[in-house]
Design a protein around this nucleic acid. Structure first.
Lengths: 244, 244
DNA sequence: CCGGTTTCCTGAACACGTTCAAGAAATCTC
DNA sequence: GAGATTTCTTGAACGTGTTCAGGAAACCGG
């Protein structure tokens, strides 16, 4: 499928997009240590949450000195960022088969978001931190920050594929902004999921099913001749106000 | 105006809705100390941000020992919560005249949200923390937590008045949920505002003007006979999925 | 007033994330 | 392989939010 060929399953670990100073993992030894630290952190995060996990415990479990963790990860939050990057890879792997198979836009959107929720489920307890820090412009986890730019672009890129690979007729002007809008929509669903404590996240899935229907309906309606002016105005607004 | 009579301008300070153990401010002396601490904290927060403000600095400026701040405020975050309660009072004071004067729904919604942004402007730099912690279910600042229930109910209550005091015809079933929906909408605008660094927050105001138009249009359209089924389905979903 | 009780206040101590000077190990150059 | 350079590792130390045992001050019933 051509439209998914731009999506990469390659992990960005090992040669991360670091900023000058922290150009780590250059030797085999260094790379191994980095992985050991990351692995320890992920296990501890999952088992006892982010706040309860101390950097000292991460270092101990990885078998290195405390200070060494700071050679490979700028801060505890960057360790979390590395986790999210891995989570995204898992999400991608889960979503790709569906994108290759299904061509109906509604099912593609629903499937990709459901895959995200499923992939995140083991980490529900501490995924709360995603949004805890997502709102802080200074945090590297903030979806608009420079440091998470790679992850964000990848995440939005997934919705590029969702749109590109569907057979639905979409007005040209809306088509350009739709992936971004779907990404925002998916963030909203995730935010709800974070707070959802219902059995099997039943409420989140009900929300998803109902709203995905509405969303697709709006996309369809926006193509009607009588609604062209309204649609153009909305698209213009999004282009204007969408963060750079 | 009857519909605003339930809104209170009384500050909740002095006799806060604390939980048993921390039933503070019972003597005149205690209450004074609490106010001194809060005042110091607000000044420091505003001038140098939340993270840069240390509890030791707060205590020093208030002229008390470090430990004493923890007698009146459970944590640094609770100090921030007290700040948001005060901010809400200022917002309320700014919004009330408009609600007494104006009866057009669109103008009421726009006015109340604009008032919120204006009231928050002096604290833009560290308001980022609102959403930083808003996503964390364990944080007292989380809009769905027990501790912020009072503030939240007040905040939604404001939109109760917005709806109740307008002359717009609104379908009965939607009318019940509309205040909550408008509150959610207003949270979205605030989230955008937090990240908005444009001159005079021009982008936020453009977003507000455009979306308020869309929102009201949807409310109007939802009353059309042909769209009753869709509206009922949407309202049912909201009732089902709205957090308790 | 006095003793008892509650409320208020103190500062040392703790665990945490983070920094840093110093040294060990790997790699490179010749 | 020796020396020079880079990469990796260490653990003590700093400043932070928070806790806590203990003491001071206010209040209350007699």
């Amino acid at each position: 499928m051509i439209e998914t060929s731009s999506l990469s399953l390659q992990s960005t670990r090992g040669r991360p997009s670091t900023r000058g100073r922290l150009d780590t993992g250059r030797t085999a030894k260094g790379s191994q240590t980095r992985d050991r630290i990351l692995e320890s952190a992920l296990l501890l995060f999952r088992d006892q949450g982010y706040e309860q996990t101390t950097m000292r415990a991460v270092a101990r479990d990885a078998g290195v000195a405390l200070g060494n963790t700071y050679y490979y990860f700028e801060s505890k939050e960057h360790l979390l960022l590395a986790f999210y990057e891995r989570l995204h890879q898992e999400h991608l792997a889960a979503a790709l088969p569906l994108l290759d198979r299904e061509r109906d836009l509604k099912k593609r959107v629903r499937g990709v978001i459901a895959a995200k929720i499923d992939a995140s489920e083991p980490y529900h307890r501490f995924s709360q931190l995603l949004f805890k820090t997502a709102g802080d412009p200074r945090s590297p986890l903030n979806p608009f920050s420079r440091e998470s730019a790679v992850a964000r672009r990848q995440s939005i890129g997934l919705f590029d594929s969702v749109v590109a690979g569907s057979i639905k007729k979409i007005p040209e002007d809306l088509r350009g902004e739709l992936p971004y809008l779907l990404w925002l929509y998916h963030m909203g669903i995730v935010l709800y999921w974070i707070h959802d404590e219902s059995e099997e996240r039943a409420k989140t899935y009900r929300l998803l099913d109902t709203t995905v229907d509405l969303v697709i309906r709006v996309v369809t309606l926006s193509g009607l001749p009588g609604l062209g002016a309204l649609r153009r105005r909305a698209v213009a607004m999004i282009k204007d106000l969408r963060p750079a």
